[in-house]
Computed example of a mutant assay.
Amino acid sequence: MVEKILIDESISLEHVGKIYQLVSKVPEFKNSRINQIEILPGGLTNSNYKVTISGVDYALRIAGAGTAEYINRPAEKHAAQLMAELGINAEVIYYDETTGDQICRFIHGKTLHIPDFHQNEDYIVKAAKVFRKFHESGLEFLTEFNLLQEMENYKNLLIQKNYNFYDGAETLEKNVAEVKKVLAINPPKLAPCHNDPLCENWIDNGEKLFLIDWEYCGMNDPMFDLAALVLEADLNEDQERLLLRSYYDSDVITKKQYGSLIINKFLCDALWSYWAVLQIATGKPHEEYWHYGLNRFNRALTLVANGKLQEALTAFDD
């Protein structure tokens, strides 16, 4: 009797074919068979699946169309492997540097969401420790994630595609320029960074936290990682300070440290607002990305309007 292969009916035949094609490229799967294919939730740019092969579970990613325009796939592969060796990322089984398709060992555990960081603040403390572990690892990623340059790249791609940005962009750009001046005088020390630590990229296997999906990796100001988590998890000011105290292992947070977090919150929202519109310009659904980007755009401008950005710049410049 031939064993039936269980495939989620919502998966397109095109992607089923791509999954089989991708699995066939891996030498260690030569004499194996696919038992089951399930959709993994999340992922704004890629399609993710849990694929059971000869009884073993793997996480398989089919990279989104057009992502090669702005994601350095060889750099991601290098970082993903380094972080796997450090015990932070899932083990990488196969990675296609041309397409960005990959297969990783599936991590059995709880995928975190926004409420988890609020209902159990121990996750904030644990995430801070994970950040510090790879920030201070001394490892070097292949590329620098220069968010100001990334922002400029996204803007130029939008211009090339003749696609408009949000109203009020002049105010955003004026303040980005002001931040750029301050950082030129006080450049942060760069460290290996994830740069996109949204809640769903954290997995608790019961023993420790893993941080997956290293697409936007690069050498960067480590405070950008903390700022990104603050925004993604919707942390309040008390929780921001808990994150900082846990990261620095100190009861006292300086004005400059807190100011650096605010500056990076502003830059993070500004960056991903451009990214969101670029997704639409490259063919993604308008309804999925326009409001996502607009919310981030407005949140960045709120830091300008309430004076927090200027206060942070002053503290950072002292």
Rank of each mutant, 00 (worst) to 15 (best):
V2E: 14
E3K: 12
E3V: 15
K4C: 08
L6I: 13
I7N: 07
D8M: 08
S10G: 04
L13Q: 15
V16G: 06
G17M: 06
K18A: 14
Y20W: 10
K25T: 09
P27N: 01
E28S: 12
I34R: 11
Q36C: 11
Q36T: 11
Q36P: 04
I37S: 09
I37P: 05
E38R: 13
L40G: 03
G42T: 01
L44V: 11
T45R: 10
S47L: 11
K50G: 12
T52I: 13
T52L: 11
G55L: 08
G55H: 03
G55P: 11
D57E: 10
D57M: 05
G64C: 04
G64M: 07
A65P: 12
A65H: 14
T67M: 06
N72Q: 05
N72W: 01
A75N: 01
K77G: 03
H78M: 05
H78C: 03
A79T: 08
A79C: 04
L82Q: 13
L82T: 07
L86G: 09
I88D: 01
N89R: 00
A90M: 06
V92L: 04
V92H: 07
E97P: 00
D101C: 05
D101R: 00
I103F: 06
C104A: 11
C104L: 15
I107Y: 11
H108F: 09
L112A: 06
N120L: 07
E121D: 10
E121I: 10
K126D: 06
A128D: 12
R132C: 08
F134Q: 01
G138W: 11
E140S: 15
L142Q: 06
L142A: 10
L147T: 13
Q149I: 01
Y154R: 13
I159V: 15
Y166K: 00
A169K: 15
E170P: 02
E170H: 08
V176Q: 06
A177P: 02
A177R: 08
E178H: 14
V179P: 03
K181H: 07
V182M: 12
L183E: 03
L183Q: 01
A184D: 13
I185W: 09
A191N: 05
A191V: 03
D196S: 05
C199A: 13
N205H: 04
E207G: 00
E207M: 04
K208V: 02
D213W: 12
D213N: 05
W214G: 02
W214C: 01
Y216A: 12
M219G: 04
N220I: 03
P222V: 11
D225S: 04
A228D: 13
A228M: 12
L229K: 09
D234Y: 14
L235P: 11
N236D: 14
Y247G: 00
S250P: 05
V252G: 04
I253R: 02
K256I: 14
Q257K: 03
Y258T: 04
Y258F: 09
I263T: 02
N264I: 00
N264M: 07
F266D: 07
L271G: 02
S273H: 13
W275F: 05
A276L: 07
A276M: 07
A276G: 15
L278S: 05
Q279T: 06
I280Q: 06
T282W: 10
P285D: 02
E287F: 10
W290Y: 13
A300L: 04
L303F: 13
L303W: 12
A305N: 15
K308I: 14
E311H: 09
L313I: 04
L313G: 08
T314K: 15
A315H: 15
D317F: 12
D318T: 15
D318V: 14
